[in-house]
Write a protein that binds this DNA or RNA. Structure first.
Lengths: 342, 342
DNA sequence: TTGAAAGCGATACCAG
DNA sequence: CTGGTATCGCTTTCAA
């Protein structure tokens, strides 16, 4: 930058003005500087810029206060990555709110102080009230991304998570190709308030009826992500449909399903496809209780949310392909070695 | 750091010495400084440190000069990410060497100047000569990682790629569950010199014979990653085994396989599992010519190689879970939206 | 063994 | 409109 100033015959301050497109420079001068920049092949050093600017990234994750393994994995990731990011002028905080409670989410968002928080990641239910609160938060100058379950694209800055309709279709394709012969299928869902759950269900149903007419989705139970509830509901389903050949566990609460299946002996004729790789589901896959797991990488989600929040704050561009969360398919054979959900 | 110096009653220089464990400080002084650090909850700013240190990361990728889609995707990633990394004091360069040519690799490595290159990523054949050259490069002070195909762990600093035995097993599991009934299987391999190809083949064969005795791996052709060669070899295989029910394409050269399959009309009874998501294989998956693709994310590979090379140069720690390259399984349904192999 | 001071590459405030 | 200069947090000579 010093070189540019010298070559262009102007001061450092002016070079800075041109570089950052700040106002108050004659176009003649801008030209001179730009020429020097081109000549010298100048490359800006972002670290130095951030240092001089004293930029801090204070990020907050608002997540449901549930104890299911997936949410706990997310929290663990936030804590783990937060520790490392301290060295990079960014802090990650977590705020837990009651699950499936739009009001709590709204209150949390409204309480945010934009002078103390630069960006927020929300993971929660989608209601008009929540949408408005998000809008207010953005109006106050904070960056907002939605995690795992989307909000309308006009409300948030970015969405970090998988295409849940596609995830449902993927589950259906696996189910259809793994099951032998005809039969009936059970779907376990979570909550009607969660957009991700609804989308998975929809994708599954559509592909199932399009491509596998020999399989019938006969029943579905709403487990509210509660292992115990799921476990209690299952016996009557099995009683009603003794010829069940497949189960799609589309939400959380897998431990309840696993316990039921393992207690009622091996089910060699049953194909089970579930969501989210956790210690429990991993073990179920290893033992053969589950046949496949559809996953979204929690480590990737948190890293991506952090990068997107920073980029939004800086009004900087980002790499679309890097931020795309994949729909991972895990079989027993391609399970990553233990030591992490990442 | 200024605060620490003040609280500890020493100079900035001394604080730096303690922080970086540099020699020449009395243990009494070290104690004083450490106490101040603890009191103040000091967090080091790595960006500022690198700035002051004028640290540059000059990284080189030595890759085979082939035109297959996977290698081209890797090169494209290197170029794309290299452009962004310029702002972060790191440069990525590519050096192409003749494929499957240990000698060329050795010469390239030996020609490296450690004062101009800080780290090297190699992707190539594994021979004693190559191993020695890698060893020499490390002795000269450069960091070395192997990409895609591994070298013995004692030679390189890190390996960036998938567990190819597990990838072969994964392919076998998919094949076994997708194929209906009995039949014969064809495996297409690449080169005997490439460790990754051998490992995939081995994993596939083992799981196939263990879990799917009804399926027989009857033939295999060595395609040398050459689409045209593969296309020419296929007719006689199909003539010899008209009842082929599955093909595992374990290396590169998919376009040849795809062309053959599409020219010889639809093969509804044939299950095809291939490696690497590329424009050609993606199209084949979409059209139903392929049933599944096993992939290793090229974007992730290059990012990971870069991070590991930097960490090695800095003797800094890294996040194992983030650097683990996943064995991706793609079906038509979970294909990432076009616009990248990432 | 310790300290003082000059940067690294950029930003920002205050003058002119 | 444009220039000078202090500063960000840390490293690195050079002296003492």
């Amino acid at each position: 930058m010093n070189d540019i100033a010298r070559v262009a015959g102007v001061s450092l301050a002016t070079v800075d003005r041109v570089l950052n497109a700040r106002p108050g420079v004659r176009s003649v001068t801008i030209e001179k500087v730009n020429k020097a920049i081109a000549e010298l092949g100048y490359i800006r050093d972002t670290a130095a810029a951030n240092l001089a600017r004293k930029r801090l990234y204070r990020l907050l994750f608002i997540i449901p206060e549930t104890t299911n393994e997936f949410m706990m994995a997310l929290e663990a990731e936030i804590a783990a990555q937060g520790a490392k990011l301290l060295h990079q002028r960014t802090t990650l905080q977590t705020l837990a709110v009651p699950p499936f409670d739009p009001r709590a989410m709204v209150d949390a968002l409204d309480a945010l102080d934009p002078s103390k928080t630069d960006g927020v990641a929300v993971i929660g239910v989608e209601t008009p009230a929540v949408r408005d609160a998000v809008k207010r938060a953005r109006a106050k100058g904070m960056a907002v991304v939605s995690l795992v379950s989307d909000l309308p694209s006009s409300e948030r800055d970015h969405f970090v998570g998988i295409d849940n309709i596609a995830a449902g279709r993927t589950a259906a394709q696996l189910m259809g190709r793994f099951v032998r012969g005809e039969g009936r299928i059970l779907v376990i869902t979570g909550s009607r308030l969660a957009r991700d759950h609804l989308e998975r269900r929809k994708g599954f149903d559509v592909l199932m009826s399009e491509e596998f007419p020999n399989l019938n989705v006969v029943a579905s139970i709403e487990g509210r992500d509660d292992p115990e509830l799921i476990r209690q509901l299952l016996p009557e389903v099995f009683a009603a449909y003794p010829d069940l050949c497949g189960i799609y566990s589309s939400a959380a609460g897998n431990p309840g399903l696993i316990r039921f299946l393992e207690e009622t002996g091996p089910h060699p004729e049953l194909t089970v496809v579930a969501h989210e790789l956790t210690p429990a589901s991993r073990a179920a896959l290893q033992s053969g209780t589950f046949d496949a797991i559809i996953n979204q990488d929690t480590g990737h989600i948190i890293r991506s949310a952090t990068r997107l929040l920073k980029a939004t704050v800086d009004k900087a561009p980002f790499d679309r392909t890097q931020e795309r969360i994949r729909i991972d398919i895990y079989l027993k054979e391609n399970l990553p070695h233990q030591g992490g959900e990442a």
